[in-house]
Design a protein around this nucleic acid. Sequence first.
DNA 1: ATTTCTGCAAATGCTTTGCATTGCA
DNA 2: TGCAATGCAAAGCATTTGCAGAAAT
Lengths: 144, 144
Amino acid sequence: MQTIEEILRTKKIKVTPQRMAVYTILKESKEHPNVEMIYQKLKPNYPAMSLATVYKTVDVLKTVGLVQELNVGEGGLRYDGWTDPHSHTYCEKCNKVGDIENIPQDFVQNEKLFQKVKAETGLEVSTAQLYFYGICADCRAQMN
Amino acid sequence: MQTIEEILRTKKIKVTPQRMAVYTILKESKEHPNVEMIYQKLKPNYPAMSLATVYKTVDVLKTVGLVQELNVGEGGLRYDGWTDPHSHTYCEKCNKVGDIENIPQDFVQNEKLFQKVKAETGLEVSTAQLYFYGICADCRAQMN
DNA sequence: ATTTCTGCAAATGCTTTGCATTGCA
DNA sequence: TGCAATGCAAAGCATTTGCAGAAAT
């Protein structure tokens, strides 16, 4: 098991406390935070950290493939430190983003389907994203 | 076959030239324009039209269910006048958005799968979106 | 020692808002 | 006529940029 520091070093980017902190948050949290949420989480431990640095850092991490960027809906881009292909849920009421561990990604993330898409549209597919939109259990409970 | 005017009337919203124009563009174009692109297309025929009106109009059309909003990546939200569930392609190089007519939506847009998702995550699913990311044929051709 | 990153502040750019005017019903 | 939509300009936010100082290799 590699440490965060080793992972960053492997990607050949400079290891800084800010990068370790952002990446740690994305690895450990399951809430798919946006930049502002990451910034708020960091503030207690890194009061000097700038929002601009968070923007720059998620961009670097995305570029080297350590995080994936999700386009869900309101509230800006979300970031996920779990980079294996998997589907996501999105609650249209509270904007919560969740992972789907087991079900459907293998349906859509496979070479055969990618070939079919290429045959129909010409797109050389590199990845697929599947999002389920709806209302989460918590929000449904609150609606009564 | 209903006219654009009749369709708007059915949705119980006021029929204005601007709304007809925006909706017509979204019905007729296959390029999934963003607000700015819609505005540029309208300019020749509606030189007085304001960008703010385009924003307001796509919002109304979305609310009444005449268009769907897509979150692809760069370049802001995209709009699609074809509201049947279908998957989309996105070219990471030129930002082009395309439809997939035949292939995969039935895989992901069905009650059985929605129930599975609900069982795993608690999300009461209303709709699913499947996006394929990659490089389109035109951009691949240009890369040689 | 060199290169790259950080933090700040300013700038950018997309989207929304407020309000007077216009236009639909 | 009454209410809603438009167009304009201003305001609001999220994100990016430039740069001097700080930190990593």
